[in-house]
Amino acid sequence: MVKIVFREHDGTEHVVDAKEGASVMLAAVTNGVPGIDADCGGACSCATCHVYVKEEWLDKLDAITPMEEAMLSLSSDRKDNSRLSCQIQVNANLDGLEVETPEFQY
């Protein structure tokens, strides 16, 4: 199991044990972490699992695909550390990963 820390917009923290191979989005949804809607169910096609990744973890993630970039670029709340959590696969290198959920998903 891999530890992932979700921080809500208001600061509320949720620490979950995530399964390797699953996505960070799924780790949130299956553990009842609020703030992630995942309307498309993990197909990288709605941008409602948007998270801000704590800077020191960014380099450990796979590169953003053109599809993810296309979806992220349409959000007004996009920042440099924005990712879609359905596109982050949980692995041992991400133990302790910290992400923040935005105030709104859309």
Partner: peptide
């Protein structure tokens, strides 16, 4: 369960902008 996972807004870059 998973009521949000419908197709009415479309998916991808043309997904309904006014969905919220």
């Amino acid at each position: 369960d998973k009521a949000r996972q419908h197709l009415s807004f479309g998916f991808g870059i043309h997904r309904c902008m006014g969905n919220r």
